[in-house]
């Protein structure tokens, strides 16, 4: 019988993603309730060095496939590697962070095993011995609870920042498995990095976001300054993206990124339903807008009715003082 709660420990360039630690932390609780093992899956090149970082979050075992062919993520390479492990050890549950890679990989693995995959979940709980996942659908306008009762492994991707990452070091057993070569049909020709010191939008704890009210690309500097004081990422509304002020990768909303930060600061954003769809699961929302009727104030925990060009620089200075204290 299939056994074991597995977490795909996503790494990129030698760094394990925070969301993987979040999943291991919550996975530990679930595994204990179900009386199953918690296992991490680590795939890549030179990833053996990362087992220590992973074991800090409490897995019983870490399955490692370390191979030159897996240096960079490719859909086929990683699908083959993870599928080999699943076939050999038959886990009951397989979890991924809902990241670009987690999405891409989980869909292929799910189909290879003809199983169910619940995506972008914001909760998981054990009900009558089954894992039940909570999933916002219709851009967060409805919530479904769902499970994969029979097919194994039951699979899910979990939205970053849903669970807390809590260290719980354990002496994990490391199991090295050979990569059973298979075709990798996607050939990487080029990798283009946008160098940024700021955190990834979907994983950031704090996001400072700008809309049409920013009036031009040059003014995003104001938001960057604020973001840097807070260690935050910068986001944008579609209006700002469509105006060509920032790239689409900044867009938050129904046709952009879904984010769940602890703090979301919306500057010059009116709060259209499609924008709210991407950020209304933020724990705390701040709105700075000169129109007191703006929709964004209906969801904001704190609002300032005023000119962002006056408010933001002062806020940056004030926060700088507070962060230093």
């Amino acid at each position: 019988m299939a056994k074991g709660i597995w977490v795909f420990a996503e790494q990129r360039e030698g760094q394990v993603k925070k969301v993987s630690f979040e999943l291991l932390s919550e996975g530990r609780k679930v595994a204990d309730q179900l009386g199953e093992e918690l296992c991490a899956v680590l795939v890549g090149k030179n990833v053996s060095d990362l087992t220590e970082a992973v074991s800090a979050y409490g897995p019983d075992k870490i399955y490692v496939i370390d191979n030159d062919a897996l240096e960079n993520y490719t859909t086929d390479g990683y699908t083959n590697a993870v599928s080999d492990l699943v076939k050999k050890y038959e886990p009951s549950v397989l979890l991924f962070g809902c990241t670009v890679t987690g999405r891409d990989l989980s869909a292929q693995v799910a189909q290879r095993f003809q199983t169910g995959l619940m995506t972008d979940c914001t909760g998981m709980e054990v009900v009558d011995g089954q894992l039940v996942f909570t999933r916002p659908i219709y851009a967060g306008k409805a919530i479904v609870k769902a499970s994969c009762p029979e097919a194994r492994p039951a699979m899910a991707t979990i939205r970053p920042n849903t669970f807390a990452a809590v260290e719980n070091a354990k002496q994990a057993e490391v199991i090295n498995v050979e990569y059973g070569a298979g075709d990798i049909r996607q050939v990487i020709k080029d990798i283009i990095r946008q160098v940024s010191e700021r955190p990834e939008l979907t994983e950031a704890n704090i996001i400072v976001s700008g809309g049409r009210g920013m009036k031009g690309p040059e003014n995003f500097k104001l938001l960057e300054d604020l973001a840097d004081v807070l260690g935050a990422a910068v986001g944008a509304s579609r209006a700002a993206v469509d105006a060509g002020w920032v790239s689409h990768s900044f867009q938050v909303g129904q046709t952009g990124k879904t984010v769940s930060p602890v703090l979301y600061i919306a500057c010059g954003i009116s709060g259209a339903i499609q924008h709210l769809a991407g950020m209304s699961s933020a724990k705390c929302i701040v709105a700075i807008n000169k129109d007191e009727e703006a929709n964004i104030f209906k969801v904001a925990d704190y609002g300032i009715v005023g000119d962002l060009f006056e408010v933001v620089p002062i806020l940056t200075e004030e926060l700088k003082k507070i962060m230093a204290s």
Partner: peptide
């Protein structure tokens, strides 16, 4: 493969304070 168990509507976020 996936069974939906229940659907619900999220609680509307409450407006907070304007400073």
């Amino acid at each position: 493969k996936v069974k939906a168990l229940s659907f619900s509507l999220p609680e509307a976020r409450q407006a907070g304070k304007v400073i």
